[in-house]
Design a protein around this nucleic acid. Sequence first.
DNA 1: TACATAAATTGATATAAAACAATTTTTCCG
DNA 2: CGGAAAAATTGTTTTATATCAATTTATGTA
Lengths: 231, 231
Amino acid sequence: MVNKLHHSSNCADCNCKASIFKNLSPFEISLINSSRFKVSYKAGEIIFKQGTPSPYFVCVTSGLAKIYIEGYGKNLILALIKPVDYIFGPGIYVDNRHYYSASAVEDCQACLVDVNIFKKLIRENADFAEEFIKRVSLQSIFNFDQVISLTQKQMHGRIADVLFYLSDKIYCQNPFELTISRQDLADLSGMSKESAIRILKEFKEEGILTLAGNALEILNPKQLRQISETG
Amino acid sequence: MVNKLHHSSNCADCNCKASIFKNLSPFEISLINSSRFKVSYKAGEIIFKQGTPSPYFVCVTSGLAKIYIEGYGKNLILALIKPVDYIFGPGIYVDNRHYYSASAVEDCQACLVDVNIFKKLIRENADFAEEFIKRVSLQSIFNFDQVISLTQKQMHGRIADVLFYLSDKIYCQNPFELTISRQDLADLSGMSKESAIRILKEFKEEGILTLAGNALEILNPKQLRQISETG
DNA sequence: TACATAAATTGATATAAAACAATTTTTCCG
DNA sequence: CGGAAAAATTGTTTTATATCAATTTATGTA
């Protein structure tokens, strides 16, 4: 999806703003704008760290980021965050701490907004609150699918799931340029980096996909779907 | 925890009501009461089924229930539900469908409340909405810990986690009567029933716990904690 | 453009856990 | 109380995946 994003100096004019804000009035938008920090991150940089305080709501306006739990010597990537989407950790309503980390996969830009402004708007605008709860619910549902994939499918099924996620939800095209590393692919599918590489090679050898460097094309989505569904 | 629960014929008088309702006015409580169905379930009965519509918010007032995802030939138990707690699936705000099933582990009773009443109260009572979002957030955090346990720990660590969950959060005592089946223990810790039984046996042989029938006592919580923490 | 470093890949071995089958114990119902 | 069915347990084999090490390829910087 070649979507030329351009940024404005304020939220009202910005056509990068996340669709969650569609229910906000111009005044409410100006409240957000008044507390907004616009920041750039280079690929590899940490946006926030698990365990640290979470005073900001993060809106990714360009590039690609990942949110991941730092577990027992390895990471589990919960999701990739593409523009324009936001990161709102559950710690905001619990104890103001981050329960996962976020970092830039590609160079990206983000707007950071004071969470208290956000919570105030949730309290005062019922449509906004409902939209927010809906999105939290969608995230839960996505996580359910993810945990079932991780715990009940074998490696081929898990890689198939991740390839569809990347093609349909992140890059939104086929073929696509795989901008995440092999390690990140492994961290998304809950396996070692070597295993992930081996499965990709097998899929290539079986003609399910092509992979040259980072250029990947799914050639046989039907077969890949079958692999996804049988685990 | 020997907590003698008794039921009243209405929500206002009921001292079984879930603490999430503490922010509701008597009038709001009466709205809930006006749409309440009180139902009994025998052990093993389905409370609701994954994939079906979800018109009710379920408040478990006695007994024990489980919520679980029916995956690829096996179940993954997300949580046990003890009194007084409620079950509010994410499908309520997405498409009115259940994304997991619930069933009674022990004989239990539940009050079913029209979700539209619930959503109306969320729209109209900002304190109630905030409390609700906080609890959804706590569930997310719990699920994060669960998925890390399931994907990054070996079986001993996972059983240790589940034993602490049962002792600290469900039965709230040590020793306790293990009222869930071996299969359920396995479904909570993402392993086969035979593996779960073997690990319990090993912990018994190592003096970490005693287990006679369903009477279980954790003898060495420090060592069990270490097993949990190292995976 | 060359070189150093990082990432990707490949090969071989070890370990963790599932699967399968059989036996024993417990529970529940008539 | 007895018997059938279900649950729990045990033993053995198979399968899935990680781990470890070495090699090759790609990237980035000087």
